[in-house]
Design a protein around this nucleic acid. Sequence first.
RNA 1: GCCGGUGUAGCUCAGUGGUUAGAGCGAACGACUCAUAAUCGUUAGGUCACUGGUUCGAUCCCAGUCACCGGCACCA
Length: 592
Amino acid sequence: MPDAILVAVAWPYANGPFHVGHIAGAYLPADVFARYQRLRGNRTLMVSGSDCHGTPITIAAEREGISPQDVIRRYHPTFLKTFQALGISFDLFTQTYTDNHYRVTTDMFLRLLENGYLYKDTMVGSYSETLGRFLPDRFVEGTCPNCGYPRARGDQCDSCGHLHDPQDLIAPRSVLDGAPVTFRETEHFFLDLAKLEPPLRAWIESVDRSYWRANTLLFTQNWLREGLRGRAITRDLEWGVPVPVDDPTFKDKRIYVWFDAVIGYFSASIEWAERIGAPDAWKEWWVCLPDGSAPARSYYFIGKDNIPFHTIIWPAMLIGYGNLALPYDVPANEFLNLEGDKMSTSRNWALWAPEIEDRYQPDAIRYYLIANGPETRDSNWSWADFVQRVNSELVATWGNLANRVLSVTHRNFGVVPQPGALTDADRQLIAATQQTFERVTALLDGVKLRAALNEAMALAQAANQYLSEQEPWKLVKSDQERAATVLFVALRTVDTLKMLFCPFLPFSSQRLHELLGYTGTIAPQPQVEETQAPDGSPRLILTGDYAASAGAWGISVLAPGQPIQAPTPLFQKLDEAIVTEELARLHAKVRS
RNA sequence: GCCGGUGUAGCUCAGUGGUUAGAGCGAACGACUCAUAAUCGUUAGGUCACUGGUUCGAUCCCAGUCACCGGCACCA
């Protein structure tokens, strides 16, 4: 029985395009993992969608004088375009602005209320008189009561580091329009995290979590150590999922974005099931078995800024709802810096996905973002490094290996040659291939993507060494049988590498698959489809049929006689000149 | 302020309580020429941030110092 695997990916705010940090942090690792799981033959469901609610969307809409729906319609399609360009293979990438999501969120809210995990309380909110609405602390600034710095943020002073509440500020004002801010009491629903803490703690401690990344575990333990307290899950906003209670006080309030966004993993699974015409299919990933265990392993791919939401709050909600599968792992990534500096959208110091997705081969971008991925610590995108690694590793080591083996074979045999007796050197490479396959498999199972990619690359290097020693291009003139044997061993290694690289480099692995004379699909790609938004307007989703790759994961069994195509290079070598061009482009658009 | 992380060869990073601390890239030299001037080999050399401690012995354990970074829950 194959395993069921849920690949849940962070929901991006639909208020701007992706930058490479988003891709490296969540979407690409999730895709690599999902592709691997599908190749293994596991039932894999990869979902996410655009987060349509929340203050950033509202602000963006106001700034541009358009509706929140317009903001979503502007940016959601750019996400889909990036995913298609880079081959991010969602089973469903939807959005939170759907009838289904509203229904599921409402259900979750009511169920938690019914189960006694929600309570009402009043809090003091920062209120903008000019805008007529409450503001998040982030949108309030004023003079620091501690040091007198005039532009202290609502929650903390950037000058002296003093922590405070917005009410403590002298002359608090809105960062949106500079108008004075007052403070009003407002009633909200709270998620009773204090009440959910004991079962949450029991869940965390129920198994040895050392398979979680150290940072993820540490963050979670710190939160638990400090003790959990209730968290407001409604807001004074006009855009979002309505609060489903019969109470005029909540008529002008909405469910708060973090509460509804995490529900997206669940609602998107349900939407997916309905789309494929099997309305109960989502249960295979979500509904606990009679013994209470999870029916699937669910992996949440997120950035480190999202850890508490996925290891504390979302599990608490799932526990409160009852009988739903809790996360198995939360492979949170650190951040990707850009040329040594933290990316900043306000300064426009960012490398936007739409700027590069058409200029470079998707596999080159994918290679660099995984090989240099922020798995255990912040890492850095540098154009010089990008060019160097693509040229020396992807092109020179792997692409060239495939190319030279295919070229010699095609020219001299035209098909996979029939091997003769194996020598020690042959057996060594075959054994190394076997070992690498096992190591890569284990590393991918543990979501250690960077290490897995490095292992595969090391085998490509070993194969290059083997070729240099065996020199099949000379043997074809002196010893046809030996040449055939060497090329056969090399071809099988290349064929295995094709599979090992497939989750990482799906475009080139698919091409190589065909060059090797196969006809099937090992790396299916996603596609955009159209459906309807709640207001009746068309809305786009990303989906795909990935069944073709199921179960293909394995060591090569390439058979003699299979025709080999004349190869052309798998990867484009990059011109050094792009380093200065890209740096100039980057610096030209930066704001100070 | 509180909590936490990081500091290893020019660059990006592995790693371990124990004889001469590793890889890739870059650099130098050599080999080869099937392959996108790709590949293969050899070499370079770093007081493993600093100080002190535990230990027969520490880069790895402990304490302190310095530097950089992150979190501190209504930003998700």
